[in-house]
């Protein structure tokens, strides 16, 4: 059973205090999207064995949604960060690369 630290209140909460919310960093496709884009948004999930970004809500706590970067295989947690972050932070990327130097982000930073 996982322990994740809520980035809002700093509480190291165990899984039973949290509610899972699936893959993080999905970009909403609204009425303007075509079928393919909408399908990808609605259904395509990476389901990684390895580095994974996911949504959690501190449901039995401060109630805030946050994001977690962790390895689904080793259970290592690279870090948690606020839900309003468009991409995993530099700290998170650095923590991942420390363990997996070959790992590359699949997003491009829009500075």
């Amino acid at each position: 059973m996982l322990i994740l630290t809520c980035p809002y209140c700093g509480v190291a909460a165990e899984e039973t205090e949290l509610a899972p919310g699936g893959e993080a960093h999905l970009k909403r496709v609204g009425p303007d999207g075509d079928d393919q884009q909408f399908e990808a948004y609605m259904f395509d999930r990476k389901n990684e064995k390895g580095v994974h970004f996911e949504r959690w809500r501190h449901a039995y706590g401060c109630g805030k949604w946050f994001l977690a970067a962790r390895d689904t295989n080793t259970l290592q947690v690279y870090g948690t960060y606020r839900a309003q972050t468009p991409h995993p932070t530099d700290d998170i990327v650095a923590a991942i690369r420390k363990v997996s130097p070959d790992w590359n982000p699949d997003w491009t930073r829009a500075e």
Binding site: A19, G21, R55, R57, A59, G63, K64, W65, A83, Q84
Partner: peptide, 13 residues
């Protein structure tokens, strides 16, 4: 309530 907070916090924050 959770649904409302989800969209408020994560999409239209």
């Amino acid at each position: 309530h959770g649904h409302m907070e989800d969209w408020l916090q994560c999409e239209w924050w």
